[in-house]
Design a protein around this nucleic acid. Structure first.
Length: 504
DNA sequence: CGGGGAGAG
DNA sequence: CATTCTCTCCCCG
């Protein structure tokens, strides 16, 4: 019933257009219950290149605080304006943000705390005895190896088999899913001799793998440099499929192709057709993309084993062909177009796929269109102002952020630099050596948490060493505190005001 | 570019 | 909790 939607963002890429697009991606009534947030790139323009002191924990902590406050603002706005609740994880890359975002569901946010690195050389990562353990490692180590995004079923299986000293673990009963003996990231990471090279041997089959070993080694060390992708206006493919007990005759196949084809046409209409209200031509529709290719794929059931056991196979076979142009005709009925498509294209493709007369025993059929060519258009590539409708006057507040780490003038806003939680308080950012108090489920020491959608709780403000540039009184999206006059991004104001209200 | 494998949700 | 469905990315020939 609930649909999980995870939105991941990298602040450096975030502009108002991105935000708007993110929300557009939601269908009406899709509740957001996952929202992973990556604060990796919050940094000032003014960070002197090569200044090592600024890349210290202090700066990292400041970034995470900003990310946390920003996430809070986003979640609050989202709930107020759209009625969606959400969960956020704040860390320095997508992997970590996503994993830590699993902590306080369905409505909360969690920040993965520093230290993120070992004290000494990076090469000691896999040898904790050499230095103070990174919180990243401590955090990620506890996960089951198969739970790491990017490590899927096959890869996890190979890793488990290796770590469990060779003999494949027999998972009786369940063909699928996790094994009883769980192998954690730590088990893999600390396996004698483990490293990229060993992973190469474990994972590098004759088949298909390249760079996988390096990627996996990075993942189990919390390293993930993949970029957040721009959201696309149109999908790269649209497909529809159904599974069957058994499909054996042409009559059955045609009947199902009719169903699938009709669905696909409808999907194309809803997903690729847009109102053309631009000109004085009534309310016409126009295609925003023209798929070029039609694909038909099937999944033949594997022929039954020697010993009679059913081998679960998900192997598909497919054929592609140019998508005939008549499908874009908006005058003819969908039914007639589908019929035409079946006769002219789908059936020939099917015969190519299955030359035999019948008895194919198909367990699945899928048809889809790919190779979507975007149909021209698209205006101002730049920064959309549309988000202003959602977040009123707060547009572009990211544009001129400054994060400085030195020479911060005395600021009544600043709170003590001690990040320890007070009894019964939930800091807006989960900084602290101890788990924050007052949570039902205590957090592991490496993660702070909060339930920031309840501003009635007392909180400790932690603006840290953050200063906002006050160029000329004219900072888009910045607001002035009525109490002390400090300028800050709109999203920080709430926390700031909580600070004023704190105590005598 | 088409056919597939792997993986995310 | 498992299965199904949809979509993406990437490799290889």
């Amino acid at each position: 019933m609930l649909k999980l939607i995870v939105v991941e963002y990298n602040l450096s890429l975030l502009n108002t257009n991105d935000l708007r697009d993110s929300f557009f991606q939601l269908k009406k009534n899709d509740p957001i219950i996952g929202f992973a947030f990556d604060a990796s790139s919050i940094s000032g323009h003014h960070q002197p290149p090569g200044d090592v002191s600024l890349s210290s924990d202090d700066l990292l902590t400041t970034r995470l605080i900003l990310g946390s406050h920003f996430a809070h603002h986003l979640r609050l706005s989202l709930e107020e304006e759209m009625g969606y609740t959400s969960t956020v994880g704040i860390s320095t890359n997508k992997l970590l943000a996503k994993l830590v975002g699993n902590l306080n569901k369905p409505k909360g946010q969690t920040t993965l705390l520093p230290p993120y690195d070992y004290q000494q050389d990076a090469g000691s990562r896999s040898h904790p005895e050499n230095g103070k353990e990174s919180n990243v490692t401590a955090f990620i180590d506890s996960h089951d190896i198969g739970k790491i995004p990017g490590i899927g079923f096959k890869t996890a299986h190979k890793l488990r088999n290796h770590v469990l000293s060779r003999p494949a673990d027999f998972d009786d009963g369940l063909i699928w899913g996790e094994t009883k003996e769980s192998v954690s990231v730590r088990d893999v990471r600390l396996f004698p001799g483990m490293g990229s090279e060993m992973l190469e041997k474990i994972l590098g089959g004759p088949g298909v793998e390249r760079g996988l070993a390096g990627k996996v080694w990075g993942l189990i060390n919390g390293v993930d440099d993949t970029e957040v992708q721009q959201m696309r206006k149109v999908p790269t493919q649209i497909s529809i499929e159904d599974s069957y007990i058994r499909l054996d005759t042409m009559a059955q196949v045609i009947k199902e192709l009719r169903m699938l084809g009709t669905s696909l046409m409808k999907r194309m209409h809803t997903d690729l057709l847009e109102d053309d209200d631009d000109l004085d031509s009534g309310s016409a529709k126009r295609w925003v993309a023209h798929p070029k290719t039609l694909r038909l794929s099937t999944r033949p059931r594997p022929p039954a084993n020697a010993d009679g056991t059913r081998t679960r196979s998900f192997n598909r076979i497919s054929r592609s062909a140019p998508l005939p142009n008549f499908v874009f005709n908006l005058k003819d009925s969908v039914d007639s177009l589908v019929e035409k498509l079946i006769q002219t294209t789908l059936l020939p493709m099917f015969r190519q796929l299955h030359p035999q007369q019948g008895g194919w025993n198909l367990s699945l059929m899928n048809i889809g269109v790919t190779n979507l060519l975007e149909a021209a258009s698209e205006e101002s590539g730049g920064k959309g102002r549309d988000i202003g409708k959602m977040f009123k006057r707060q547009e572009d507040f990211l544009k001129d952020w400054k994060v400085e780490d030195r020479d911060v003038p005395p600021d009544p806003v600043r709170s003590p630099k001690t990040y320890t939680s007070e009894p019964n308080s939930n800091p807006p950012v989960g900084i602290g050596a101890e788990p924050s108090a007052g949570n039902d489920a205590p957090d592991p020491p490496m993660a702070g948490s909060e339930d920031v959608l309840h501003p009635t709780q007392n909180t400790i403000d932690e603006e840290a060493d953050v200063e906002w540039e006050e160029d000329d009184e004219q900072l888009d999206g910045h607001e002035r505190c009525g109490e002390c006059g400090a300028m800050m991004p709109a999203f920080a104001l709430a926390a700031h005001e909580r600070f004023h209200g704190l105590g005598p």
